[in-house]
Design a protein around this nucleic acid. Sequence first.
DNA 1: CATTTGCTTGACCGTTTGGTCAAAATGAAC
DNA 2: GTTCATTTTGACCAAACGGTCAAGCAAATG
Lengths: 215, 215
Amino acid sequence: MNQTKRKDAKASKPLSRIQEANRKAILDAALDVFATSGFRGATIDAIAARTGMSKPNLLYYFKSKQQIYQQVLEQTLEDWLAPFEAIDPEGDPVEELRRYITAKLEMSSKRPEASKLFANEILHGAPVVGSFLETTLKDLVTEKTKVIRHWVGEGKLAPIDPYHLIFMIWATTQHYADFDIQIRAVAGSQAGRPGFSEQAAQAVLTIILNGIKPR
Amino acid sequence: MNQTKRKDAKASKPLSRIQEANRKAILDAALDVFATSGFRGATIDAIAARTGMSKPNLLYYFKSKQQIYQQVLEQTLEDWLAPFEAIDPEGDPVEELRRYITAKLEMSSKRPEASKLFANEILHGAPVVGSFLETTLKDLVTEKTKVIRHWVGEGKLAPIDPYHLIFMIWATTQHYADFDIQIRAVAGSQAGRPGFSEQAAQAVLTIILNGIKPR
DNA sequence: CATTTGCTTGACCGTTTGGTCAAAATGAAC
DNA sequence: GTTCATTTTGACCAAACGGTCAAGCAAATG
């Protein structure tokens, strides 16, 4: 029964059906808990309660709270980055950025927990994703700044600093997820209305795209 | 009964010289600790260590960790709001907004801890400042949206939604404080150079102001 | 000087929480 | 059924942490 197919001790894990389901349930619950309470504020018990499992059972699937956190974060980063990678150097600048901003705003509205989780991580010094930021993300951003600079060179965009344009898009799109409570408190009835997030997207697009169009 | 000379709401403490100095030292240390570790992550011991006092001594001046947190937050909110209140309805729109954005970016660069403290509070559901957001801040924002709408009506600004303009400014200016680690990681050498924050201010102003100028 | 009041702290307590462990339940294979 | 591996948990431990308290120290006050 110990063929290459069944149970490999170290290299890779076949992952039984039960394991796969439980792991996923745990990571889903953990995302919520970590996002609302932060790493320190979250407790294994809280995550366990949310999945209906016992605490030791969580630690049967993941060896520590840290590890759960890392995996949730890792999983989140991929989604977070995908639309950024998708910016096409060959496409029309305004159209590409419109697509990117729209995608990010949609993510903020649909999965604010992911955004909050990430915000928390960065806010506390990026202890886990720090090296990722300095390598993968940095390279990716460098690449995109070249694209933007190329667009500017062609006269398709106003002469703006690519870094700050990117930061500004990140800032704005994340804000709607991370600060949603403040937004709801301040905008009051406005924010409750259906179509509010579409309206937000429209306003953000208007300002940024007008701001970077060549004059 | 109550002489109205002291600013005290509780009508008891004249506050000795020593008390005033120690209270301030504690609040200063607490700002740093809360900003970098969050409420849950911060410990009274850490704050005490930073002031050179003992833990019981902190609790002699403030009755609980919560109370320290509240006072730090309260103190921070005032600074945070001041430049927003200062937006002058009679002034030139572009000039007023330039002043506001510049002031906020400067705060982000000089006192990022204050910004981080606030971000953390909101991110975790605004348990302490929630009611403040729904009353004072909401009223203030409503007032400023009217000013912006008036400017738009006069044709001095492009027709943009005032709420989203405000959110966008908040988002962007806070981003440079709250996500400074990500910015430094991604921008690398750029961010280290002197004048980086001035450059950031220039870029942000360019995009937003161009974005809202009437065409 | 003595006395009162304000300031400071070492030692301690109760609770929370991350993590362990041995044993029980469940399931799979024969 | 029996046997063996996987999954689950109650009970427990050690460390961390918020907070208390009684006693010590300092500084005014007389």
